[in-house]
Design a protein around this nucleic acid. Structure first.
Lengths: 290, 290
DNA sequence: TGCATGACGTGCATTTATGCATGTTACCCA
DNA sequence: TGGGTAACATGCATAAATGCACGTCATGCA
């Protein structure tokens, strides 16, 4: 039985995407081609893999089985590509970095500028997102992360430890300085939607007013004078229109790490990037703590 | 990075075959196509995968790495195909049986005849060989084997136990009956190239004369009167021109099993074949022991 | 009910991959 | 040393896969 491996890959894409069009986009193909590959796979395997519904393709049991195994094949392919990448000692081509959005402006961008100067042959692609990209699936080569540990199959280096504190617009800060008993609005992050106990003990008139799911939006709200926000020190200090307020004394906060899959860690480009990144954070350590 | 999975498969075939032509034969392609796929894979991965030598393609380190992972992908594909096959409840299409050459004539062929009559829609393909085909790699669906146990990942059923004894041409048998001290030539199998101790104790004039690597050839030699041969009882009894001689009393011999990969065992076609196979061996049990 | 949308099928032109025939090179053996 | 073989490269005709334009059908909403 001769079954085309790319047809299996196509089945996987359709199961993941749910429609021919989504799969085609993922595979960078026309959806007509996807349709025909599915037909070919069904003919070769002698199984119906999808139900054709009005709103897309739904996998049958057989289709799911094929997709599971195709995913296994894809994992082996990713493994291969990572290992080849790990052997790569060249300083040209592309390097994909991911970092938390708000760390990019103050710290990642300057590092990228220095790196670009030192290695003009390397094209950096930055993926600024708070999502944790899957380094095993090669969504990025090197990740800068704010977390407790590098993670399972990843290798990492702690760049620096940091603290958080409360920040607000200057007007609110002045009002608080004049009268510590003034009522203050607190803007909380969705994952921890309350006013910290420490704040309430010293400033019982603080009340929860807004809960956001995005730190950039919280920064904007604080700048606009809507309330006080807990954020990392580096961020509050680097944001114009914000000053530190004494509501929340400096607190421990998750460390900053640089991590990569261990297959990729020692390759030339990630290594060269670290050689700029690590000294930068060493030199700027005071910006992260009180 | 978009790399064609079939190109990886092609790299694997070239690493296995050593030449473009061998890989092309395995893949059922023209070797020109194989050559171009290798070039495409090298371009996509940015690595030289083979050294072009006068006597073929030799894999570089990178080439071996690719082949290893492609082999992993192939294993997943085999896994998938076996599982789909295991779900298959149809009684049409192909069923691949493998059996030891010499068991085919007297016992497998009659079973196949009955099965073909009961299930005319199933095409049987027989692979008669003494090599152990790899059922994990789907070289056969169902195997009839002479061995001690079904094996690691395989499921099996013991068809019957059997014994071996010594056989020779009638002329030699008569000479031995007339004079037990007569000199007898022993034809041995390569894996055990000596006269059994039991034989020498009773018939010290037996001497090793020929060592063969093929049981069919040994049967022929015995028929031609070249000497006595140890063989399974069923074989000696079923072979015209051979009679049992008392040199070697009946000995325990490896059992006869029917085995399949456990993914495939319960599929309709293997099950249906067993339903003919098992009763046959049950009915013919006396042919295998003294 | 009529219209816009999203998803899929179909026929045809075009691009791409494949196979075949021929040419080149190294090697083995008489 | 010369002829045969095995392995690979190359150019060209053919076959196959792909993309595009258009058509159909179900769904949701005004």
């Amino acid at each position: 039985m001769q079954i085309d491996w790319d047809d299996l890959k196509t089945v996987l894409a359709v199961v993941r995407g749910g429609t021919l069009a989504a799969a085609a986009a993922e595979l960078d193909l026309n959806y007509t081609t996807v349709s025909r590959r599915i037909l070919r796979a069904e003919a070769a395997l002698g199984e119906v893999l999808f139900e054709r519904l009005a709103d897309g393709y739904r996998a049958t049991d057989a289709g799911r089985l094929v997709a599971e195994h195709a995913a296994g094949m894809e994992a082996r392919q990713d493994d291969l590509l990572r290992r080849l990448q790990g052997r790569d000692q060249s300083l040209n081509g592309e390097l994909v970095i991911t970092a938390p959005q708000l760390l990019v402006g103050p710290h990642v961008a300057p590092v990228m500028a220095r790196f670009a100067e030192a290695h003009p042959q390397v094209q950096i692609r930055l993926r600024a997102t708070n999502d944790l990209l899957d380094l095993t699936r090669r969504e990025a080569d090197l990740a800068i992360r704010i977390s407790r540990s590098p993670g399972d199959t990843l290798t990492g280096l702690r760049l620096c430890s940091q603290q958080s504190a409360s920040f607000a617009a200057p007007g609110l800060a002045e009002r608080l300085a004049a009268d510590p008993a003034t009522a203050v609005d607190w803007i909380a992050y969705e994952q921890n939607p309350r006013v910290p106990q420490v704040v309430l003990e010293q400033y019982p008139n603080t009340r929860l007013r807004l809960v956001f799911d995005d730190m950039a939006a919280m920064v904007g709200a604080a700048q606009a004078g809507l309330g006080a926000v807990r954020m990392p020190l580096f961020l509050g200090r680097a944001t114009p229109g914000l000053v530190q307020v004494p509501l929340l004394p400096p607190q421990p906060y998750a460390d900053i790490w640089v991590v990569a899959h261990r297959d990729v860690w020692r390759a030339a480009k990630p290594r060269a990037f670290r050689e700029v990144l690590v000294p930068w954070f060493k030199a700027n350590r005071p910006l992260f703590v009180a």
